[in-house]
Design a binder for these strands. Structure first.
Length: 126
RNA sequence: GGAAUCGGCUGGUAGACGAUCGUCGGCUGGGUGGUGAUAGCCCAAGCUGGAGGAAAGUCCGGACACCGAAAGGCAGCAUGCCUGUCGAAAGACAGGGCAGCUCUGUGUAAUGCCGAGCUGACGGACAGUGUCGCAGAAAAUAUACCGCCCGCCUUCGUCAAGACUUCGGCGGACAAGCCCGAAUCCGCUAACCGUAGCAUAGGAGGGCUUGCCCGCCGUAGCCUUGGCGAAGGAGGGUAAGGGUGAAAUGGCGAGGUAAGAGCUCACCGCUCCGAUGGUAACUGAGGAGGCAAGAUAAACCCCUUGCGGUGCAAGACAGAACAGAACCAAACGGGUUGCCUGCCCGGCUGGGAGCUUCGGCUUCUGAUAUGGUUCGGGUAUUAGUCGCACCCUGCCUGCGGGUGGGGAAUCAACCUUUUUUACAGAGGGUGGUUAGACAAAUGAUCGUCCACUCCGUCCCUCGGGGCAGAGUGAACAGAAUCCGGCUUACGAGGUCGGUUCCACAG
RNA sequence: GACCCGUUCGUCUAGCGGUCUAGGACUCCGCCCUUUCACGGCGGCAACACGGGUUCGAGUCCCGUACGGGUCG
C-alpha cells in the first residue's frame, strides 16, 4: 500500500481532532490514537509523532521510516475510513522493526480496526 | 627493535551482490485546460538524481532581503607583537621577534649564559581613576612605628673631686669645775725698786674632768661638678635591620660613618640616550644617571582598526471577511424565478423647538440601513506561490515561460602519458548529473556472502573450535536560504611525539 | 530554522574578585518542651552544572562544553 502525501495527517487541527474526539491505546513502544470518519474517501490517514524524548534526529528518522514501512506492507489490514495517529514512546528508539510490527498488529486487533478479509487469508493459503 | 597506553596532526573509503515494495524531486508520455501554445490539475508507466566532515553547536565573517538615507558622530560591541602570502571579511599558513615554563650543559656569592622542547587573548600601568583581604612596622604615598645613633633635660646607680653635716680618733684653742705648788709672772707681805718671804685666796701657769670650737684622719649622710651606666621625656640623624606576605623601593664585597645610607668604589642588575644591523617587531656597541621604577587593563579606561539595525519565521506576490476613507445611486432593497406578477423577509429614521383642525406641517441638528465603484493598510490562508537550488549569456514570448550557446565541478566507461605490475596521479575527450523537503524525502523486507557482539548447545589438550539463533554494519551523527571559517563529537588506518614494560648491544 | 537568557543545599532563593569553611527560609535528622502529638526552642547534615584560562586569590571575570528556558509568521 502506498503512502503518498494525501494519506497523511499534516495539519495541527487534524491531529487535535483525533486527540480530542478519538480513542487511544498505549503499548510498550507506541501510543495509537484513532477516529472513525465515514466521509473519508481514502482507506485511512496516518500521522506519525516522534518527539525529542526519543533521541536525536537520526533516531527519530529511523523510527518514522520503520513505522511507515510497516504501514506500507500491512496497511491493507486496516478497516477503511479511519484517522490514525502513532506516537512513539521514549524507548521506541531501542526497539527493532519486528517488535514494532508485533505491537502495531496487537493494537490493531485490540482497537477493532483489524479487517479480516478473505482475500488475504486465501492469498496466505495459496 | 617489539608490545601496551596517552596526546597531536592527517584521514571522512560504503558492508557487497541480487530480488520485491515504497518515498521526495527532475525529465519524457496521455488527458484536461473553451483553442494553437504556456502555467496549473489528473492519470499510469519508464528513465534519472537524492545527506556530512562535521549536515551538529550557532561562536565569528560575508552574500542576499527589508527597515528612511546607510554619509558623519555619540553610545555599545568586537579587535590587538612584526613581516609576508591567500582571502570580500573573519580567519588560516609561513617566517621572525619578545616573554614565560621545563630539560640538558655550563657558570656565579647571586641574578645568569648557550642549546632544545612546549606555551603565549603578545597594544598601553609616567593620560587618569579604582583595587590589593589575612598576615605584617609598613601594601603603593613615601615615611609614621620598633630598632640604631647623636647631643639635651629629668630620675636613679656608680666612680672621682669639692663643700656641708653626723659619729669616732688624734691634736689644738677657749670656757667652767676640781686638783697642783718646785714657785716663772701678776698678786699679797716686808715702805718702794732690786731682793726676800708668803700664799695657792684670786689671775696667769701646769694637770685632770666636762663642755664648746678649730684642724687632720676615718665613717656615714647630703649637696655640687665631672665621667660611666640604667630608665624616662622631648628633639634630631638614619633607612643597615623588622620574616609577614603573592608582592617590601637593587644584589654581593670593600671603604666610609656617631649610627648609617649608592654616601663612595669594583662587578652584576636597572633607567635614559643611542652607534650598528634589520622592511619591521626588535637588537643594543658605546655613553650617561647613582637608582626614580610593584601587580592588576579576561577592573574602569586610553590608543589602533572594524561594525547602521534586523534577520529567509528576512522579504516579495496573490488575497477573502470585518472594520476604515472617498465618490455614486435610489427610497426601497433582498430572496424565490429564465423573466414578470405574486409570495416571504428587512427597511422607509432619531432628537430639539414652534404651529396645529391632532390627521400632520415647518424649521434646526445629528446619524444611517442597502447596493455599487475606487483607494491604501493588510489579516485569515491544510502560511498558498516565490525567495529555493551550478554559473554566465543570445533569441522568441500571449511575460507564465520556451529554446539555444558557453563555462565550472563531479561520476562512469574509454584514450594518452608518468610509474616496477597493479593501485594511484596528470591530461584529453564521450555521455550523464548538479539534493532541495516543509508533520519535513534519501527507506523497508527477503536471500547469499563477509566482519563483530550477545545468548544457547556440543567437542576437546581449557584455551579455542563447530552448530543454530538474534542484533549491528565502526563511531559521531540527518541537509532546511547559501557560502567561507571556528569550536565540539567520533572508529579502523597512516604518521609524529611522550610514558611504561620486554629483548638485545655498548 | 533564526535569535536571546539562565544553571548555587532535597526545594525556593541571597551572594563588592578577599575572615566564603557560601548566608536565609522550607524540608530532613538529633535533643529539649508536652501525658502524647502539633506548635515552639537548641543543634546538626546538606550546594557554587562540567572543563580550561586570567589573577597572589574565581561562586563572581573570560573561553568552551552540557543541560534547561524563552522570543520571532
Amino acid at each position: 500500500m502506498k503512502l503518498p502525501r494525501t494519506r497523511r495527517i499534516r495539519t495541527r487541527s487534524e491531529f487535535a481532532r483525533v486527540r480530542n474526539q478519538g480513542q487511544s491505546i498505549s503499548g510498550r513502544f507506541l501510543v495509537m490514537g484513532y477516529l472513525a470518519d465515514d466521509a473519508m474517501d481514502e482507506p485511512f490517514k496516518l500521522g506519525l509523532i516522534t518527539t525529542k524524548k526519543i533521541g536525536n534526529a537520526v533516531v527519530r528518522n529511523r523510527v518514522r521510516r520503520r513505522l511507515r514501512a510497516i504501514l506500507q506492507r500491512e496497511g491493507h489490514r486496516v478497516r477503511p475510513g479511519h484517522w490514525m495517529v502513532l506516537i512513539a514512546r521514549h524507548n521506541a528508539g531501542d526497539a527493532t522493526s519486528t517488535q514494532l510490527e508485533k505491537e502495531w498488529k496487537w493494537m490493531l486487533r485490540k482497537s477493532g480496526l483489524h479487517l479480516e478479509t478473505k482475500s488475504s487469508e486465501e492469498a496466505a493459503a495459496a
